[in-house]
């Protein structure tokens, strides 16, 4: 199971990297979203996918899935949400102001 997950993560990261390296603002943002998905899954996988019960003590199970990575990923998801929202608005403003979403055309002036 872990190996399958790691391979999935690998694919996510590869595609995310490819998207980030492109010129279009939109694609870069999508790439970042994919990258954060990959990171979350990797984190969860590395904490061992033991098939315990969900980390709710009310379940009174003998073993629980590791709660710490879950808490961290939860934080990461929300932060990622905030950052993505920010990037989207940034992209929106950039396009409104400069009329392009191509990074090559968005370069600063020579003397910068």
């Amino acid at each position: 199971m872990e190996i399958l997950m790691i391979l999935t993560v690998g694919v996510l990261v590869t595609v995310a990297t490819y998207m980030i390296l492109t010129k279009s603002l939109l694609r870069v943002i999508l790439g970042v979203v994919l990258l954060s998905h990959g990171a979350h899954l990797l984190f969860l996988t590395m904490a061992n996918l033991k098939q315990g019960s969900p980390p709710l003590l009310g379940e009174e199970a003998s073993s629980y899935a590791d709660p710490l990575p879950q808490a961290l990923i939860l934080t990461a998801i929300v932060i990622g949400f905030g950052i993505t929202a920010f990037m989207l608005v940034l992209a929106y403003r950039t396009y409104k102001a400069h009329g392009t979403d191509n990074f090559d055309e968005l370069r600063g002036t020579e003397d910068e």
Partner: peptide, 24 residues
Amino acid sequence: SNLIISIGVGLVVTLTALSAHAFS
């Protein structure tokens, strides 16, 4: 070159994760 870089990154991440898993 984009393709090579992204495949490289993906490969390194995968290998690191696999090795870390085996190590743990």
